[in-house]
Design a binder for these strands. Structure first.
Lengths: 332, 332
DNA sequence: AAGCCAAATGTAACCGGTTACATTATCGTC
DNA sequence: GACGATAATGTAACCGGTTACATTTGGCTT
């Protein structure tokens, strides 16, 4: 394998000069630089980045922990991460954790073993052991999208509570008073925040909370389908349903239609995320648009700041309510 | 930073003994092993994998080149890759190429610079320069899903021609004779194969080919939407449309309904891929199911075979026609 | 011509493991 | 007790760059 010593020999200079000619061309004489570059070309030399990384103790790799890449929203976030990382010369090591904490911990340890410089987490969980990073130490990590209340690192998220409140208020403004909610996984802070926003809207409108209208889900279309089944079987059926993800909303609409009911005439449905399919569902989905790619881009920018030893503030990204045809005025 | 020398000092042995106690425990005495393990624990020692990799000249990373991770089908393939890689101790470096050949080349060069051991490509293109891997050299690469005719490496794919033929025959068997097709990107071999299958079915049934019925797309819902617009505007409208991806089929259905037409009563629609949303679309989509995760898993298994110097054969995975409600008998 | 400084280049240590080879310890056999 | 075989451990080279420090070169000043 052609290494720097071969090139040095070929150019008739020392290895140090070759290294300098490539890394800081301005400190070698033009003539020498010329010679070196010619030798590099002739030998087909490419620096062994493993050696470079080993020496500099930087891998220029970032680990991304994502619950499931099959989720369209996460796919967009990852897309943003990948793009931003690429621009800044970082690679992206992907870890599909499938909610498995052991796997997250294992991947996060790539940082301890110097296979990656930092971690971007799309899930609320601290994958680092107390031992690897004792309390007080700066974690080379960013939490994005789903965020712990007392996250031990900088975070970038949405104001989920306000967004859910706005979606619910939209339904209330259409005359709905019996509004179902299909929630995310029980232990998720994001789910709790969105539920809080839903309740905020209800109490502001003087509507009492009915626990029966809250159904758990897991963000998949399948869980939305099942939750809708429960909701439409209620003695007093809701006239609208707010779903914590578009994927669940699409599953719910499918079940509602299967029951012979119409959307939005019989039941209005609102989603969350504004995935690509939201505009193509029948009817097109009213939803909260999140800047998914921006989450990824910002997370990368923040992580690199942390890696370079600078202070970073938490970030809250904006959302928009996108009103489409899946929600309409309530007709009793 | 705790390194192997610190541990050696702590345990009162040489670095070689520490290394051996950890890597081949059977060749050190039990007493010494005990001592070493205690020192490792006490020092909180974790081997610096960068050094290990540097020494062994293996990174245990695989590069995955994917046109776009936002595509649900690719997301599933990547999921399979990630899982299989993880099981075998490999990491996955993701590269969202967005069809940009320069980017693919750049990422593939991670192999030349020893930042990754091999490449899995979900797109038909040889990203390696003639210089890095002269003709005849064994490329550390697997082509999956989309495959070059004369791929310079082992491939794992579907019999796209047969699958497209079967989907088209399904439509013909329902009485359709005027069948539109929404294709993938022009230069893709996969698109060409599927079109060939479509034509096979037509000519077997004695139906002449009408070029007007062939619309290009790019696998996104948006392109399906636009192509459908073209097809329904034809003087002699097709009674069925075969789409090369479910995403395009969903976009097409959306446009068809917008035009006041019904699926499948007025126009039958068949897709390709069987993504999660296919069952939840309205109507549920008739489609060709591909074993997406299996593509990923097999590609990893094959690549590791190649990396370990063994011979690998091409692989063809099975498909299934899944008949749902988006296709029905033709009513003139 | 001597003296000085800056620029250019060379030498060799270093990063943290792995492992070939050398050395020492242990045990059994005659 | 001497000898050889084997097991256990130590020593140091090595992977391929980077860089602190040493050395050489060349131009300029007085």
């Amino acid at each position: 394998m052609t290494n720097i010593r071969k090139v040095a020999e070929l150019a008739g200079v020392s290895v140090a000069t070759v290294s300098r000619a490539l890394k800081s061309p301005d400190i070698v004489s033009p003539a020498t630089r010329e010679k070196v570059l010619k030798a590099v070309d002739q030998a087909g030399y490419k620096p062994n980045l493993m050696a470079v990384q080993f020496r500099s103790q930087r891998t220029y790799n970032l680990v991304v922990l994502v619950p499931t890449i099959a989720n369209t929203f996460f796919a967009r976030v990852i897309s943003g991460i990948q793009e931003a990382a690429q621009e800044r010369g970082y690679g992206v090591l992907l870890c599909n954790t499938l909610g498995n904490e052991a796997m997250e911990t294992q991947y996060a340890s790539l940082v301890s073993t110097r296979q990656a410089d930092g971690v971007i987490q799309l899930r609320a969980f601290n994958p680092f052991s107390e031992k690897a990073f004792p309390a007080g130490a700066v974690l080379p990590m960013i939490n994005a999208c789903e965020v712990l209340d007392d996250a031990p690192c900088p975070t970038v998220k949405l104001d989920n509570r306000a967004a859910a409140r706005e979606a619910t208020e939209h339904l209330i403004s259409l005359g709905h008073r019996r509004i179902g909610m299909i929630k995310g996984p029980r232990r998720s802070p994001l789910t709790r925040d969105r539920q809080q926003g839903y309740q905020d809207a209800l109490s502001a409108a003087g509507i009492p909370l009915d626990e029966c209208l809250l159904c758990p889900g897991d963000f998949t279309p399948r869980s939305g389908y099942q939750a809708a089944e429960t909701l439409i079987a209620l003695a007093e059926r809701p006239s609208a349903i707010f779903c914590e993800s578009d994927e669940m909303a699409i599953g719910a609409i499918s079940r509602i239609k299967e029951a012979g009911l119409r959307v939005p005439e019989d039941i209005s449905v609102a989603g969350f995320d504004d995935i690509a399919f939201a505009s193509y569902s029948d009817p097109p989905l009213t939803t909260i648009a999140q800047p998914a790619e921006a989450f990824g881009r910002e997370a990368v920018a923040m992580l690199i700041e942390v890696l370079e030893g600078r202070q970073v503030d938490n970030l809250v990204l904006p959302y928009t309510l996108v009103s489409r045809a899946s929600t309409a005025t309530c007709r009793p």
